[in-house]
Design a protein around this nucleic acid. Structure first.
Lengths: 207, 207
DNA sequence: TCTCTTTAATACTGTCGCGTATGGATACGG
DNA sequence: CCGTATCCATACGCGACAGTATTAAAGAGA
């Protein structure tokens, strides 16, 4: 206990630099830090891994800290899911939506939409499928999928497909991207994603 | 306690018929019954839902029964995953592999491979995504995916595609099927699978 | 420097699930 | 009908986590 005090007084923020590049620069945690840690936990263990005490341990604090930011575990989960849906829904697609040429936009979408947004994003998406019975999870995933599907469908329309065909085409194309992600995460010797992105592009770009 | 005895003596197997159509006809449980219950739990809660005492409750017994069949929880999980991988790997594909005409085989595969094998199979597959860090899960999923991919690739070769293109084509096609499953499970207003199966077939059947 | 707010530590209670021990009940072969 | 193996109930100890209460420390502002 004494040692702990000395440690913190001597260098209040050293533990971050070493143990936790995730959190902010200050020596104290914010609600966002907890939400980010929760997302990281989701990415490699699903909702079940969002446990207050284990999270506190990896953050180098005790749960006394947590309850200064959230009322309970559910509130943290909701916050994390909301944050994820926000940053990966319409908002996360802004840069793609801004591309004027539909052909180029489609190519970009097909190759990077899932991977590019944030490094741990795909893992979160996949992990959430395991908890799809939770209504909050279902909403968040649906929101993200919907935003992407709409952009894809719009792109196909701009490429000349009739509306209904554009919709189902977008659905199958997006499904393929999701599935490739799925395979990549469970296959140890999966081919590099670039190769498959090319294959997918060849298939899903209307000739 | 008395009432319990009376209940069992009066009609030893009534509770099954009413509460648990999953289990066998006998009034006592087998190891397979537990494995099946475990798979059901996985289907709607992932590995975390495979908990001995809750399972015992839904089966109408206490955990004293469980430990007569398995040494511990891990053994049950392994058994359930092994059973799933067996019945959904090469073995579950036998009837498709038996189809001589590659075009018809491909069509059947694309429309029914994931849904048809067993009703709760797709849910298990998706739920396992949330636990893909567990090596046993990874193995089981990989085994099932691999069997399907190989059959698909073989089919594409028989349809005249060069081997490497057949492989990547199979991969993208299978990914699309998986992804459609993802979407169907998270989308409340998802279009009927038949429609999309048609769309998929149109895309993935080489012209 | 003093005060106020935010963040964190500590100690507690309650709950849930795992695993063990033990004895009773049931099915089945002789 | 009897004995034995299998299945099941009960009671127990244990550890992990949620949540509360209380107190202390750190940061921000006057």
């Amino acid at each position: 206990m004494i040692r702990h005090r000395i440690f913190r007084l001597t260098n209040p923020s050293i533990r971050w630099r070493i143990l936790l590049p995730v959190v902010n620069e200050s020596s104290r945690l914010s609600a966002q830090d907890w939400a980010r840690a929760a997302l990281k936990a989701i990415a490699d263990g699903g909702l079940a891994a969002v446990a207050v005490e284990p999270l506190a341990r990896t953050l180098g604090v005790t749960k006394g800290s947590f309850y200064a930011h959230y009322r309970n575990r559910d509130e943290l989960i909701t916050a994390a899911l909301t944050e994820w849906a926000r940053s990966h829904g319409a908002e996360g697609l802004a840069e793609f939506a801004a591309i004027a040429d539909p052909a180029r936009r489609l190519r970009e979408l097909l190759t990077t939409v899932v991977q590019a947004v944030q490094p741990l994003a795909p893992s979160v998406h996949l992990s959430l499928l395991g908890d799809r019975n939770d209504p909050r999870v279902r909403d968040a995933v649906h929101q993200v999928n919907q935003a992407r599907l709409e952009l894809l469908a719009r792109t196909y329309r701009e490429l000349g497909l009739p509306p209904d065909r554009a919709t189902s085409r977008a659905r199958v194309a997006y499904a393929a991207i999701l599935g490739l992600l799925h395979l990549a995460q469970t296959d140890p010797d999966a081919p590099h994603s670039a190769v498959l992105a090319d294959e997918a592009t060849a298939i899903f770009l209307p000739s």
